[in-house]
């Protein structure tokens, strides 16, 4: 089931000072995460990830995610330290073709040396905010008894 990326989050993802981190699983089952600023959202609400290195661990893991149906996640961190997690399913990859060439030219214009390897299309499955203050409030409300007694006493005074 797809999840919809809100306009607020789309805007955040499009900002240059937003950090985007992809976490993925290797064929050996190891977790790998890497900053990937080439994550965007397309007009269909899918995440687009542009890969520039054939043998990067993320590229290997993205192939693995398609072959063995393993989900990935993208963490979005804003300049003011808000953070969001998008869990996703890699639904396809393109390594040539008109759409590939559109991205190829776009990123070549940004930096001549950029040599696009693959375009990945990721369907968002689940989205949640992980900003510390938000997570703290949500957790307190949902699990009020996971607390030390001194804190509990302070909160109930």
């Amino acid at each position: 089931m797809s999840a919809e990326i809100s306009k607020e989050l789309k805007d955040l993802i499009s900002k240059e000072d937003t950090i985007k981190v992809i976490a993925s699983i290797s064929p050996q089952g190891e977790v790998h995460s890497a900053v990937k600023q080439s994550v965007t959202v397309d007009e269909n609400g899918q995440l687009i990830y542009l890969e520039f290195f054939e043998k990067s661990q993320t590229n290997i893991n993205m192939v693995n995610s398609i072959w063995f149906d393993k989900n990935i996640s993208v963490t979005i961190i804003s300049a003011d330290n808000r953070s969001f997690v998008i869990k996703g399913k890699t639904i396809r990859s393109r390594v040539f073709g008109k759409e590939f060439e559109k991205y190829y030219r776009l990123y070549e214009e940004r930096e001549k040396d950029n040599d696009l390897v693959a375009v990945y299309y990721i369907e968002p499955l689940e989205i949640y905010e992980q900003t510390f203050a938000v997570q703290k409030a949500q957790h307190k409300e949902k699990y009020p008894l996971y607390v030390h007694l001194d804190k509990y006493a302070e909160e109930t005074e």
């Binding site: 192939v63 398609i66 072959w67 639904i91 396809r92 990859s93 393109r94 390594v95 073709g97 693959a118």
Partner: peptide
């Protein structure tokens, strides 16, 4: 005569 040279799969291959 007119059949695709090939098929593209979801892994890009």
């Amino acid at each position: 005569r007119y059949f695709p040279e090939g098929l593209i799969l979801k892994d890009g291959s």
